[in-house]
Design a binder for these strands. Structure first.
Lengths: 152, 152
DNA sequence: TATTGTTATACTCTATAACTATA
DNA sequence: TATAGTTATAGAGTATAACAATA
């Protein structure tokens, strides 16, 4: 099976066996394809994750959403500001605590996620196909172990 | 087996099954640990990859090293400038083509890689341990498939 | 005093366009 | 005309420090 690969076969030394390097390259490949998928609605992957979390878990506080996504609260502020300015999500008052506000998806945000659904699923299917049968589940399991100190 | 997890168990919706999201989180975890490992010598992961490639494949042109690492040549320039300014690597003239120059590790760069070797190996071992027996090889295989259109 | 959110800021990474000197 | 390297620049992502309002 002929496989046209433009790479001139360069020895990368230690890197070729490094988990971190392989993760960086694989993430870059998937991320680029995903960013292109989201271009139809002019949003970025990070913004898309926030919208998806709001759909699945409405009413959370900023710190909760940020922590769930591994984003610092200080960086979350401008990220969410942009979503709010675009009318895709909103901050609403909370009764108990006047410092915090609950985050919600707007109707417009929900409609956008609906429009993106097919494209996002196709993106996911493209890469799942490359992993072969059971490959995706296997990969997700290994990636989860990398982040879990319980496996130390 | 009690497993103290500070996470308040938030539903991430679609994200929890997405390859891209899992890659981003796992990469962030490994990258942060690796950056901390390299702090002893005040270099960044990207700079370390360049030095490792120069050690394994001395004399390559900039475009070759950049392509091998998935870095745009335009971004490679300031990256390598910093390494050259620090005396860790150098550009040397090539006989055939006066436009291009070959890239080499300096003695100081080689010495730095030697000093980092134990720390880098320990970093790698930490994450390999989380993956269990055969887990690392399995992971590297799956990550390679993600980047290879031959598996489409 | 501690917590939630915010501002300001800086550094790295990534991306595009346009230029130079050589080929 | 095409290629290797470079400059300029802009946008994301990520990091720390310090602050205001509220608890």
């Amino acid at each position: 099976m002929p496989h046209t690969n433009a790479q001139p076969l360069i020895d990368l030394g230690v890197l070729s066996g490094q988990i971190g390097h392989a993760l960086r390259r694989a993430h870059a490949a998937v991320f680029q394809d995903f960013a292109a998928t989201l271009e139809a609605e002019s949003i970025r992957p990070a913004q898309h994750s926030v919208l998806e979390v709001l759909r699945a878990s409405p009413g959370l506080r900023q710190a909760q959403v940020a922590a769930a996504l591994g984003i610092k609260t200080t960086n979350f502020v401008p990220l969410f500001d942009a979503l709010e300015a675009a009318g895709l999500a909103e901050r609403r008052a909370i009764s108990d605590d006047r410092r915090a506000r609950g985050l919600f998806l707007s109707d417009r945000g929900a409609a956008m996620l609906d429009r993106l659904r097919a494209g996002v699923a196709a993106h996911e299917a493209r890469f799942a196909a490359r992993l072969g049968t059971d490959g995706k589940l296997l990969l997700l399991g290994l990636l989860a172990r990398l982040q879990d100190p319980a496996f130390d």
